[in-house]
């Protein structure tokens, strides 16, 4: 059964327009009260998302061999939705990053005669930071909001209970394919962003007079990468995809959504995913610094 809990609300008198009114309270309660409520709500969400993540992980491992012929097509569908169909916009984003970041950085370094910094700069900027983050954010924007609405509607219509009644584990059927599909999509799309941005960046620089064959350019970038960059990149993108898909599924499933709540749920999903991805990103900074 899904970990359903009552909405995290802090008792407070509510005004006629739905605004919280703290009549007769001290000034510091009026000032810090809303902040405290928001903080409490965020902490409650963190606790529940952690519980949801543990349940999902347990389901992934304990039900790895259960109903594979049902779950596998669902995973493929999610990869199609979050990966293949997002490819055009990812290519566009990669091209834009190529022109804006790779092309301009290359030109700038050429002008000041510091081409030896080209490799480290591009690896740090594009490979380690911008590509994973931008791939996760594009997937979140293209798939996240739609999925929250889809799952929220299913929850509101009682489809989750219907699955339970049929002996189908809702976490296994609804969440696991999305988590695996979105995580796989973010990992793969990151590779496409890197390839496109470097390719388009080189082309842009070449057209502006860069005297360097493509093999040498790619050699400089590849030479600036450590072997550990590959597992770290995989771990980072997997963490982004896993967190994004979890938060999306959590907000879609854990509260039966009414029509008027869909907007707020999607906004919270986007905000929490961005914050979570940036926090994970920050965790990787010390690792890269010590490389």
């Amino acid at each position: 059964m899904l970990p359903v809990e009552p909405s995290p609300t802090v008792p407070a008198p509510v005004g006629t327009a739905g605004t919280t009114v703290l009549v007769g309270s001290a000034w510091w309660v009026r000032v810090f009260g809303p902040v405290g409520r928001k903080l409490l709500r965020t902490l409650t969400d963190c606790r529940r998302i952690t519980a949801f993540a543990l349940i999902t992980l347990a389901t992934v491992f304990t039900k790895a061999g259960v109903a594979r012929r049902v779950i596998r097509p669902l995973i493929q569908l999610q990869i199609l939705r979050a990966g293949v169909r997002v490819l055009p916009i990812i290519c566009f984003l990669g091209a834009a990053l190529g022109v804006v970041i790779v092309g301009q950085t290359t030109q700038l370094l050429l002008q000041v005669g510091q081409t030896k910094l080209l490799g480290p700069l591009l690896v740090n900027l594009v490979v380690r930071e911008l590509a994973p983050l931008s791939a996760a954010l594009v997937v979140l924007a293209r798939v996240g909001t739609a999925t929250v609405t889809e799952l929220g509607t299913a929850r509101a219509l009682g489809e989750v209970e219907a699955l339970e009644a049929l002996g189908v584990d809702p976490i296994h059927y609804l969440v696991v394919p999305r988590v695996i599909g979105i995580t796989t999509a973010v990992v793969c799309l990151t590779v496409y962003v890197i390839l496109f941005s470097l390719g388009v960046g080189y082309l842009f620089s070449f057209l502006r007079g860069l005297q360097m064959p493509p093999g040498e350019f790619l050699g400089i970038v590849a030479g600036a990468m450590e072997w550990v960059d590959f597992p770290l990149l995989a771990m980072k993108t997997m963490a982004f995809g896993f967190l994004a898909s979890l938060i999306i599924c959590y907000h879609g499933l854990c509260h039966p959504l009414r029509l008027e709540e869909v907007g707020e749920a999607t906004t919270r999903t986007v905000a929490q995913t961005v914050v979570a991805c940036l926090l994970v990103d920050a965790l990787f900074v010390p690792i890269y610094v010590f490389l």
Binding site: A67, R69, V70, L157, G158, E159, E161, A162, L166, G167, V168, Y173
Partner: peptide
């Protein structure tokens, strides 16, 4: 009956069978 509206009639009936 909380049928799954996006699935066909066949898919609705087949779901518990395929999963089980």
């Amino acid at each position: 009956g909380r049928v799954f509206p996006r699935m066909t009639v066949y898919e609705n009936v087949a779901l518990p069978v395929t999963y089980d």
